[in-house]
Write a protein that binds this DNA or RNA. Sequence first.
DNA 1: GGTTAGCACTCTACGAACGAGAGTGCTAAC
DNA 2: GTTAGCACTCTCGTTCGTAGAGTGCTAACC
Lengths: 343, 343
Amino acid sequence: MRLDERKFMILRAIIDDYIMTAVPVGSRTISRKAGVSFSPATIRNEMSDLEELGYLDQPHTSAGRVPSAKAYRLYVDHLLKVNEVSPEDAKRITDHFNARAGQVEEVIRGAAQTLSDMTRYTALVAAPQMYTMRIERVQLVKVGAQTALMIVVTNAGIIKDAVIRVPEALESDHLYTISQMLTEQLHDLTLSQIRQRFAEVFRDMREHRRLFASVLDALENRMEKAESQNMVVGGTTNLLSYPEYSDLAKARNFLAVLESKEKLYPLLKQAGGVEFTIRIGPENRLPELSECSLITATYRVGENTTGTMGVIGPTRMNYGRVLSVLSFMGRMISDLLSGENSD
Amino acid sequence: MRLDERKFMILRAIIDDYIMTAVPVGSRTISRKAGVSFSPATIRNEMSDLEELGYLDQPHTSAGRVPSAKAYRLYVDHLLKVNEVSPEDAKRITDHFNARAGQVEEVIRGAAQTLSDMTRYTALVAAPQMYTMRIERVQLVKVGAQTALMIVVTNAGIIKDAVIRVPEALESDHLYTISQMLTEQLHDLTLSQIRQRFAEVFRDMREHRRLFASVLDALENRMEKAESQNMVVGGTTNLLSYPEYSDLAKARNFLAVLESKEKLYPLLKQAGGVEFTIRIGPENRLPELSECSLITATYRVGENTTGTMGVIGPTRMNYGRVLSVLSFMGRMISDLLSGENSD
DNA sequence: GGTTAGCACTCTACGAACGAGAGTGCTAAC
DNA sequence: GTTAGCACTCTCGTTCGTAGAGTGCTAACC
């Protein structure tokens, strides 16, 4: 038995209907649809075939049919047309960002908020990978007697600043001079090139060896560690309004996952590099998300720095719309983060 | 009819039991308690009196009794003993903070997390009021061609930095010089004293008028506005595990409030100044929280700067424990934020 | 007079029984 | 190959009845 034209058409109609209503779809429903000229009985035969092929599930004998994960997979692989984002959507997105400043964190936060508002699902946005960013400036600002704030400006804007210890008691002016030296030495390097570079710098400036060690530490450890923290979740409670989560226990489980960034970050990270990934139901590793789909997308910052974002919804999510919104959002973030430093 | 000794005792037993179980308390339950030597019938008579006095409610004729808001009020006003925080609790709190750096935002975030972990309720922590902080240093760091990051260091640590526009194209060195001037002029002033001060500064340095205007703007507008944003909510989903919220609609309503900081902030703000406030059920303005209690506490930073934090739980929350944890946490935050700059 | 045992009464929670409605699967006719 | 017809199945909402918990009242007790 093969998936002929008509089966395709019927499957598609079922998926479309189920995405809208979340109610098992019956044969009558399909046969009433515009463009369908078969009786319920015929549809029933086809549905029976589709079930045998594994594209449909039956919650119980006399309910309608529900698309299986395999069906969604077919849907996104072959049946889905990704439309250009609608002008209204585009406007809403750009409006959201008009007030935003250029700090990485603010852009990320705004993106998560906007994504979840637009899709009514839950959005994840991770800050761009910092290994490949080029440093433009490093500056230390005195905060306490033995502490300083380190600010790193890269071609993608400011990365999260960190408080570091300053072993010696240095005056503000002195710190500034050191900052200038650091900037000179590190300018245009990526974070991953820094360690080698530091070896050289060390030789020239033995005097502040411990301070430099602190800076290096902060650059490498703190920032890499913070990366998994540097992820924003938006619209956590959106999913609660879908009937899939009318079961409180399920809802609680789900919310618990969203609160643990340690679990979420790998999900996004897995997708690294590829422009879009769609993981449907059990294709997600986490059992808590086995009834969810996750669509991730990559955004670029500058030449070779990328970041990841994603949208989590029920498996019957509106894949087409989410994809188009994500794609537009990707361009938006790229513009905001890449363009910021040259204006 | 008056509240005699015995009625007090019985009411207290009922409240204690209800706080533990969330199940309406019957007369038998009380009479079985250690220290009570009356039969269920006697207890019933007293309960009937207590109901008439408005301290108990009856969900329906043949259920047990439930404490009213008035009862909780009495409880916290007269019956509650606030114990010193237990050594285990104290240890857990301090442990939580060991890894924290001294930035205001991090301390705030950590406090919310810890409070909610410890109490299993939902925690709110607002950043300290900035009007009364004294400025220690202002520094501008060049970020883009026409943008700079403004960092303000106060006696309570760093306040949230802001990106501002630099109208003129200034070099890094020049910005540093200006920063030094700003620091000199503004040192030891509170944020609220700045506007006057700026008038004078303006006269001396006409040259950078527009830059200063930006700085002033950022200091006043952005930061005051951000204040309501500068609040962290922790343990949002904790309350979902209480039977009070087994109704999904209620839970959703509640979570929606927690997502809107505009609604939450005034709740905390109302308490300004007083060391502790306890608002029980309807005493909260928000109808969504009419079945919750909110305990707020004030923490001090330095001499006359204060901030507010709070814990939201069901009306039958464990008032004693929350109060003691809040009080310890207040001291903790004060230490972390006031001490940071002198080490 | 305060306290208590006894008992009828009330209300909820829970499960069984039942009918309506939606949908299927099969058969036979077109 | 398509469709009408029909018996069958399963869920959902309703109703009904019962068990259990708890009250309120009365009368007896100390």
